[in-house]
């Protein structure tokens, strides 16, 4: 009886807090750029060859090279690299609760860049950034961060605003829903449901273009907030990149990846368009990371336990 009552109170207050959160998010969404063409035709595209089958080539970036330009000089003069990361994407960029340090697959990549540019993988300042702020922070002057390694998918819309490195991971959209919902498909998992997606994430963009029958959409600052909202009964399902969807399922055994993956895309390192020297440099680091076994080692450390064989995720 007492448990049930506490549960009800929890749910009620969660709703209240959620409303407050959504209110703030709505204001943010107002400033979000318009979404590209409707998602319906894109859903039909499932083949790997069709990755980035939009009006642009999401797999293309500047050729790799170590050229010291204005940006590299600026970073070397400063003495450390500032990287925008996540602290709550399990195994990608997250805070170890024992040591308090941020670690994960994306962090390994950030350190590899710092090691290449500055000769020391520890000369890196990790700044957590909200999903919604990623593009804005790269465009701001003065730029508060040099680059973003934060499970960021390459989209045509973003390519108009910022630059990306060559792809370093292949992902698609996945639905996370409670196992108890027994959803057999994406349409079943999202239809008539309260769907959660991180504000201004690619999943949020997809939901705006094609709601998949969702009754409502909540957009907290961070994809992991969606898991909190689902656990507190404030959302029924979450749409996310497969990378982060796997991270959510790994943290809550009552959740599952529901339905089929769709909308395959690449993940890349986000940078300012003008920092051509840094973009080329990062592409050089990525090439070495791939050929030198660094990518594989990081995958084995962080992602293999949850995602299995890396085959489907390699962008090359």
């Amino acid at each position: 009886m007492r448990r049930a009552r506490t549960g009800t109170l929890l749910a009620a207050a969660a709703l209240l807090a959620g409303l407050l959160g959504t209110g703030g998010s709505a204001a943010g969404a107002g400033g979000a750029p318009a979404v590209g063409p409707a998602g319906a035709p894109r859903n039909a595209v499932a083949a790997a060859e069709a990755v980035g089958a939009e009006n642009c080539d999401t797999g293309a970036s500047l050729p790799p090279g170590e050229r010291v330009g204005a940006k590299i000089q600026e970073i070397r003069k400063r003495g450390y690299l500032v990287v925008g990361v996540d602290q709550s994407a399990y195994n990608w960029g997250y805070r170890d609760s024992q040591t308090g340090k941020i670690q994960g697959f994306d962090i390994d990549l950030a350190r590899a860049v710092a090691k290449s540019v500055l000769g020391d993988g520890n000369k890196v300042v990790l700044k957590t950034v909200a999903t919604a702020d990623r593009v804005k922070l790269l465009q701001q002057q003065p730029q508060p961060i040099d680059l973003i390694a934060r499970a960021m998918t390459i989209t045509c819309e973003r390519l108009e605003q910022i630059a990306f490195s060559a792809p370093y991971f292949r992902v698609s959209q996945r639905v996370v829903a409670p196992k108890a919902a027994h959803a057999g498909s994406v349409a079943q998992a999202l239809g008539g449901k309260r769907v959660c997606a991180a504000l201004n994430s690619s999943s949020h963009g997809e939901l705006k273009a094609n709601p998949h029958g969702a009754a409502s959409v909540v957009t907290p600052d961070n994809q992991l907030d969606c898991l909190v909202l689902m656990e507190l009964g404030e959302a029924d399902a979450t749409l996310s990149d497969s990378s982060l969807a796997a991270a959510m399922v790994a943290q809550d055994q009552t959740m599952e990846l529901a339905g089929e993956p769709f909308l395959p895309t690449y993940m890349g390192v986000g940078m300012n368009k003008n920092d051509t020297d840094l973009i080329a440099w990062v592409n050089q680091v990525l090439a070495e990371w791939r050929t030198g076994g660094g990518w594989q080692a990081s995958y084995d450390t962080w992602l293999r336990p949850g995602m299995g064989d890396p085959g489907p995720y390699r962008p090359w």
């Binding site: 602290q87 709550s88 994407a89 399990y90 997250y94 805070r95 170890d96 609760s97 024992q98 961070n222 992991l224 907030d225 898991l227 909190v228 943290q251 809550d252």
Partner: peptide, 10 residues
């Protein structure tokens, strides 16, 4: 948090 999951932080 004690289980080492970032969900605790959320």
């Amino acid at each position: 948090n004690r289980e080492g999951l970032p969900l605790g932080g959320a």
